[in-house]
């Protein structure tokens, strides 16, 4: 074999070795990456070494991706989290929706408090009206979409999967 081929073969075998090592120790490596990233982040933010931040964030993200892949490729039947989440999907859905819209709703409603406050400000009535209108439209959109979503989740949660399969399609789109 030529020197070039030798070098290629060596590089390939090293790559395989690295791949195999990462595959076998993905979980440990991922947790280590996360821990290292977290430590780097602490140093970056508390020690004002901001050059570290992007690397720390990268390691944290890589750790997350590694943990996800490692557990994702595990035997599905040994995973209880998906079952747990599925059984509580409705509660999780409602809580997430309400928690997501609540701060924005509070802030939008609070705009009312800004209409007449702070004397001495040079604010045009048109600008205030426009701001209120935009805020109002956003509030309505947020409440309506959030409300419809919660209602739909609650309604769906009251139905059992078995009902669905039993129900033959009714041809709602029938030409007749």
């Amino acid at each position: 074999m030529s020197t070039v081929e030798d070098a290629q073969a060596t590089a390939a075998s090293r790559l395989d070795a690295v791949r195999s090592f990462v595959g076998q120790h993905l979980r440990v490596l991922s947790i280590a990456a996360f821990a290292l990233g977290f430590a780097g982040l602490l140093i970056s933010e508390l020690g004002d070494v901001h050059q570290l931040r992007v690397f720390a964030a990268g390691l944290i993200s890589l750790g997350g991706v590694g943990i996800g892949i490692d557990t994702g490729l595990a035997d599905p039947r040994t995973l209880r989290v998906p079952d747990w989440m599925r059984s509580r999907a409705a509660v999780i859905g409602v809580v997430s929706t309400v928690a997501a819209i609540a701060p924005a709703v509070v802030a939008l409603v609070a705009m009312v408090g800004g209409i007449n406050g702070a004397d001495g400000l040079d604010r045009s009535d048109v600008a205030i009206a426009l701001g209120l209108l935009i805020g109002f439209l956003m509030l309505i959109a947020t409440l309506m979409t959030g409300g419809l979503t919660v209602l739909r989740i609650v309604r769906a949660a009251g139905e059992s999967p078995a009902d669905g399969r039993e129900h033959a399609p009714n041809g709602e789109g029938a030409d007749a």
């Binding site: 750790g63 943990i67 996800g68």
Partner: peptide
């Protein structure tokens, strides 16, 4: 940030 990355990677894997 570890959480969304882990969840996405888990689901896609």
């Amino acid at each position: 940030m570890v959480l969304p990355f882990a969840f996405i990677a888990f689901g896609l894997a």
